[in-house]
Design a protein around this nucleic acid. Sequence first.
RNA 1: AGGCCCGUAGCCUAGAUUGGAUUAAGGCGUCAGCUUGCGGAGCUGGAGACCGGGAGUUCAAGUCUCUCCGGGCCUGCCA
Length: 626
Amino acid sequence: MILRKYKSIIKDEMDRALKEINFPEVDYQIKENTNPEYGELYTNIPFMLSKSLKKNPMDIANEIQKELVFDQSIISEVSKPGYVNFKINYKNLCEETLRNEITQLKESVNIGENQKVILEHTSVNPNKALHIGHARNLFIGDTLARMLRFTGYDLTVMNYIDDSGLQVADIIVGMKYGGFSEIPENNMKFDEYAGDKIYVKINELYENDKELAGKREYVLKELEKKSEIRQYAKEITNKILKAQLETAKRLDAKYDLLVFESDIIFSNGWKIILDKLKEEKIIQLEKEGDLSGAWIFKTNFKNETDKVIIRSDGTSTYIAKDIVLAAWKIGIINEIFNYLPFNNTELLATTLDNIENKYNFHNNMKSITLIDARQSRLQKIIKEILNQFNDNKDKIYEHLSYEIVSLSKGTAETLGIRTEDKKIIQMSGRKGMYINVDKALDIIKNKVYEETKLRNINESEEWIDNTAEKISIAAFRYELLKNDLDKIIVFDLNNSLKLDGETGPYLLYTFARATSILEKSEFQPKIEQIKNIHECLNQPHEIELIKNMAKIDIIIEESVKNMSPMRIAKFTYNLCNLFNSFYEKSPVLREEDKNIMNSRLFLVNSFRNSLIILFDLLGINYLDRI
RNA sequence: AGGCCCGUAGCCUAGAUUGGAUUAAGGCGUCAGCUUGCGGAGCUGGAGACCGGGAGUUCAAGUCUCUCCGGGCCUGCCA
């Protein structure tokens, strides 16, 4: 719509010109300039051609530039060692940017073209409450989901529920044989109760109670049969899951589909996959050695040990279920589930009940699985196996990896964790070394509540509480999104209580400022009523703000292509930063020249509209006042 | 031991895809300012980085290659 449009106009004309002068084809790009002095865009193709043409870049640049023909909105210039720069007429850029409309923007960034994609995130074992590491997964996943939908993908967001694993078994052992009550004490949230009170304690008890430890193996086996214990476990895990989903809802994450591991186990999917694996000789029966009698997958990777898929006793390993799930996602096998609303909500869940199937979630063009970096090896193996199926053609299975959240030494110590000489502490659900999402949020909220109250003494208790809740979530969300996926986040409670600088509250504050101006102005000007808006908004800080707003389409496109929520987060922060400079330097309501005032007002309104779009992508609820 | 990831001011973090042109950008902290002015959860300015070390490729390297150092993770017939 804006800068992206100019980029493609320039690219087209460049292509034409290069063909005209008969230059060899190279894969070049139109890039953004870091220094606005040289114009908005440039190309470095003269350098790329310099060698093969045996000419110096400056001459090539001149040759190209002479051939280029644009209308008055674009000026091309050659500068120093051999760049061709493109300056976009500020009048055009300014007017087009300020007229930003969401429908137009969506159209211009429609890179998905309705392609069917499935995104899995969260996927926390239903035996404990979400901790802040899970929150990172959830925030990244939910933000990606918003980005993919915005750019026109036909997306399914799924949450995988491992309801038959060892971790669930621990809770069942605790309740059935360990003497733990099925009802939490003091109205504790059920997921928190299971995780904090049972999971941690039962693992301690195993140390000295061999019989209890034996029960765990028994329960685990029963979970894979249609047994009474399985039925019981289903009830318990559903209660935990509901509690987890309450937290997810508080964090503003939305899912379309829950896939239960137990439904994979009891479906015919595994049999189909197993036959295919054997038939296509992807796995093979080991005849001798340590793994004798097991079916294994030999990896191509250097020095990797072979992966057991079926144990010598005939049972399947954990990875087997993942292969079925992955194969289902990209349509290597047909639909194996039916679907029912979960807990009477809009959220759907898999079922094997024989009902009419109105939905179809398998067979996606692309599958994105968001799991932390520790599972990279396993995911690599799954991808490798999928690649070997004959009927896997052009489908993409992608593991989107992100680094974990660790605790700072100080924060770990406040939890009573012995840190010894370690600088950062890895969380562990089993050892009870973690910070619950709800608790972390409550701590942040207490602080935000005080700050909000100070600034809004006349507001109702309800208003303050609701506002504090929203600000806290924005703070938490931004905190976990602003780093790139490959960076470990060291979580420090004191640090996350910061409400200024590059934070969620700063974004909300900026939004409220912009809103406040618009509320106080008597009318909203139409751009047609303003004379020469580009001349009224011609101070450096105004130009910089507008030019950055013009980049929104490019940023959204790049963020999606690189699966980078961080890029949108940083862009939004930068835009707010520029707006606050504008706010200090260009008074709006106090400006005496009516035309200038209206121009600024119009800018404020456009900026606010841009923020609404960006906040929506980031999952931040905007507030007109904070 | 092998594989993957990280290393940018005191601390944290950007610097995208495919190397490109200002004094390498921002936040925290620190120092100095700004409010009878549209919300100070803000703004302006200062100090603070030879981008972990070294070598290489290139007209051009924070960015690519190699190597070394430091840190993290993974490597189960557990899930």
